[in-house]
Nucleic acid binder design. Structure first.
Lengths: 140, 140
DNA sequence: CTTGTTGCAAACTTTTTGCATACAC
DNA sequence: GTGTATGCAAAAAGTTTGCAACAAG
């Protein structure tokens, strides 16, 4: 979705275009994967007047509009990422904490099975698989 | 793991066998999938003197011993389940909130791929796939 | 007796909410 | 002007921690 598009989408749905919303979307774009807290920090580099609640409320709106997505990459806060990134799912190593983004293509057989046998349409972009890299550095 | 086994495992690792630990493990067994809070409620049916912190601390110990596992079936609190249940992963419908337990067998090709191509050993028991049942009741 | 375990209360982290003000349209 | 969006501060939800008292082995 281009810069023009999302502004149009926002307005089209009766939402208003505010500086906060632009800053927050930009921050998510810049950061890659970031928690609401990290988004706030990034936003505050550009404007100190933005509030925490606004970040939460805005991330919700942006996700509803399909502009950002979130996944749970830790036991703590969720991380948001822009949908400008190609759709992917995540592997998270419990040992070295590394996050690997994987092409959804490898899920095709599984998705087909869930769809056909269980009538379940999986949300790939939200999927996170925890485990361990078999060759990673042990936890320090 | 039988009743005798787990007590032995506990002691073998230098842990003590306390009424709280027995009650909490029983509660998890009875409840199927339950949040720490729900576990506490169940435990309190049998003893009102058990504390919240004890539930958290005990679930941690029981998980370390491999007696229980947890998964994230909602955006809120985690849910714990007994390993007496056969290993499984979860599908969660965002529409009707239904939780479907699925046999890990269907993941075999995916796991093999992740192992061989990305040197990643996935933790199946912790896996939760969000999505929607294609034929479920719309959210009320 | 010794040391792990518990209860309690307080602190912490993350998220949500109510309400008055501000501002996008 | 009208109603959405924001800032603020307080509350909520879930979890963790320090410490004295307790109890398992």
């Amino acid at each position: 979705m281009t810069g023009l598009d999302w502004r149009a989408t926002l307005r089209g749905r009766g939402y208003r275009l505010t500086p906060q919303r632009e800053l927050i979307l930009q921050a998510v774009d810049v950061l890659g994967h970031a928690t609401p807290d990290e988004v706030l920090s990034e936003v505050r580099k550009h404007s100190t007047a933005v509030n925490q609640s606004t970040v939460y409320r805005t991330l919700e709106v942006l996700e509803e509009l399909g502009l950002v997505r979130h996944a749970h990459l830790s036991e703590r806060a969720p991380t948001y990422h822009s949908v400008r990134d190609r759709e992917h799912f995540h592997l998270v190593c419990r040992n070295c904490q590394r996050v690997i983004s994987v092409d959804p293509e490898v899920l095709a057989p599984l998705l087909a099975h869930l769809r056909e046998e269980l009538a379940f349409e999986a949300d790939v972009g939200h999927l996170t698989v925890f485990g361990i890299c078999t060759e990673c550095e042990p936890t320090p």
